[in-house]
């Protein structure tokens, strides 16, 4: 079981109960909708390697319980997260109203530079919509969040949400805004990047050898 990747990012999925956090994760990883899912107690996990701007990034995703009561528990999982999907349900204003609380927690407890993408899930239930796209995108802008409306049922924008979030983190690393080596950045070098870092010339040497053959 050898996995090669350049970076490992710790991701969170947060938001109220019943907004579809676990289903988003399941859709992202298995590429299908889980219609008989249990509710998450505590935390569940997923991981996937994606290719973003020519880098292999392994996402280590922490899918947390949504009930308010569990916050004291789930808060302890925020530490060192590099990215987060903040999920609400477009058919439930209540889940939208709770966003500020979730956001405060995430900014306070995860890494300072955490990249958050707001996901208005259940896009397929447009007829029951209680939160407009415009309103949510304004909220996202005011709070410096990326924003997508997603559907864990159809898969629309699900992969995009994870990829966009990862891409932004990579950009921040490249621009120097994020330092992966800082403690609690939520970023680790993968094997590939480590090899390059330790012996930047080794790649050349190997290819030179190949030429000699």
């Amino acid at each position: 079981m050898s996995e090669t990747y350049d970076f490992l990012f710790k991701f969170l999925v947060i938001g109220n109960a019943g907004t579809g956090k676990s289903c988003l994760l399941h859709q992202f990883i298995e590429k299908r909708f889980k219609d008989d899912s249990n509710h998450t107690i505590g935390v569940e996990f997923g991981s996937k390697i994606i290719n973003v701007v020519n880098k292999y990034v392994k996402l280590q995703i922490w899918d947390t319980a949504g009930q308010e009561r569990f916050r004291s528990v789930t808060r302890s999982y925020y530490r060192g997260a590099a990215g987060a999907l903040l999920v609400y349900d477009i058919t439930s204003r209540e889940t939208y109203n709770a966003l500020t609380n979730w956001l405060t927690d995430a900014r306070m407890l995860a890494s300072q530079n955490i990249v958050i993408i707001l996901c208005g899930n259940k896009k397929d239930l447009d007829a029951d919509r209680e939160v407009t796209f415009l309103e949510a995108s304004r909220f996202a802008q005011e709070n410096e969040l990326m924003f997508l409306e997603t559907s864990a049922l159809t898969g629309e924008n699900v992969e995009e949400a994870f990829i966009q979030c990862a891409r932004k983190i990579l950009n921040k690393i490249e621009s120097g805004e994020l330092d992966p080596e800082r403690m609690g950045s939520g970023i680790q070098y993968g094997d590939a990047a480590l090899r390059q870092l330790r012996s930047p010339r080794r790649g050349q040497a190997e290819s030179a050898q190949e030429c000699g053959c």
């Binding site: 109960a17 249990n38 509710h39």
Partner: peptide
């Protein structure tokens, strides 16, 4: 909500 998600 949770009843529907108990031993589905």
């Amino acid at each position: 909500l949770d009843i529907s998600r108990t031993f589905p």
